[in-house]
Design a protein around this nucleic acid. Structure first.
Lengths: 209, 209
DNA sequence: CCCCCATGTAGACGACTGTATACTTTTGCG
DNA sequence: CGCAAAAGTATACAGTCGTCTACATGGGGG
């Protein structure tokens, strides 16, 4: 399962290549894949039962890629305590360097195949849980209860993933995207601290500081 | 342009029907469309030059639908001043009643066709601008500057659209989605009020109230 | 060494696709 | 009504697709 070689790898990589050139995983054809990979169409059957199974394997492949990225991220976040700014920069650079995987994830998360959608949702939920637990364990946002941290993590993971797509496609907006992401995160966590208070009270207090 | 009739309408509606049954606009076939609409394949050519033009027309069709929805929403928001809760409920019910259009929008916003993506982005940006201007004019969040209101509106519109997809597909989670959406909005605007203050200061103050 | 099994190739099949040309029906207007 | 344009249909063609069966290669373990 773990390491792919030969034709199998070639086919998966061909899929990633085609998808970045504005295609969708679900719309790829067997022959098209083989053509792009430089293989005979029938070679496909030596590695996959059908296109559905292929899709899942591609998802597994990119999930593996993403996991190593997350691991790096956590290792880096451990060393710095002012997480936000550099962390956001790091994350977007990571997505940029894994544009193909990112594109697949974003496309299929809202794509037509229910199976792939569920698989991706589970993957994202798992990442969100990890992120939340890290935040809670390291007491990064004291004053916010655990359930809320989980909720915010869930939103943030998705927000970043979608913005990563823009980040990849619109180089001229990268600074803005990074900045808005920081705003997003800051507002969510700061907002959570004063969630139960009426806006007027907050505004009055804030204007005095 | 305005009113569709006969075969043209049938084809567009057939597309919406197929898309809700887990398909993507870009992946629809000419013959498939005609079959679903109960028409001869060649009738398609009487109304559309090719499938790309068809896609754009479908988008225009649902954009028209959405616009009337937004108009209703603004009319309703005018009458109540505690916007948030009922507004959110209203919005999700609207999306639920226009499931096909919602699905198309979400699918194609991250779909493989750059043309459709741009068209949808512009549509969403326009809606976000309208929303922001409403909020600013009615002074719903004093203490937050205009640029920030625009930024938050932009995020919120997208957040709600994506959650609307879940809302449609997962009936058992509808209450939770509605609640989390309220949280999202509240945290964004409240967070914006205290954006520039260090979290510790906020937490200390909040714990005293 | 040889054999075997995994991997890759060749050719063919029926089904489906987008499109062109030609014909029929329906519709709206003077 | 009469007739022209619009809308819908029939048939056909070349291309692509997924899949099947049969055959070729080639590298590692007995």
């Amino acid at each position: 399962m773990s390491v792919m070689t030969g034709g199998k790898l070639k086919l998966v990589q061909a899929a990633l290549r085609l998808i970045t050139e504005s295609r969708s995983l679900t719309s790829l054809g067997l022959r098209e894949l083989a053509r792009e990979a430089g293989l005979n169409p029938n070679t496909f059957y030596r590695h996959f039962r059908n296109l559905d199974e292929f899709g899942l394997q591609v998802l597994g492949y990119i999930a593996e890629e993403m996991k190593t990225g997350v691991r790096e991220l956590r290792r880096m976040a451990e060393s710095s305590d002012q997480a936000s700014r550099e962390t956001v920069a790091f994350v977007y650079h990571y997505f940029l360097n894994n544009a193909a995987a990112t594109t697949v994830a974003v496309r299929e998360l809202h794509g037509p195949s229910p199976v792939l959608r569920r698989a991706l949702e589970n993957q994202l939920d798992a990442s969100a849980r990890e992120m939340a637990e890290d935040i809670i364990e390291r007491r990064l946002v004291p004053g916010v209860d655990d359930a809320t941290v989980h909720e915010i993590s869930h939103m943030t993971i998705r927000y970043i993933l979608f913005r990563a797509m823009d980040y990849i496609e619109k180089p001229d907006q990268r600074d803005r995207i990074q900045l808005e992401t920081e705003h997003f995160i800051n507002r969510q966590f700061r907002g959570a601290l004063v969630e139960s208070l009426p806006p007027e009270t907050i505004a009055r207090w804030a204007s005095k500081n």
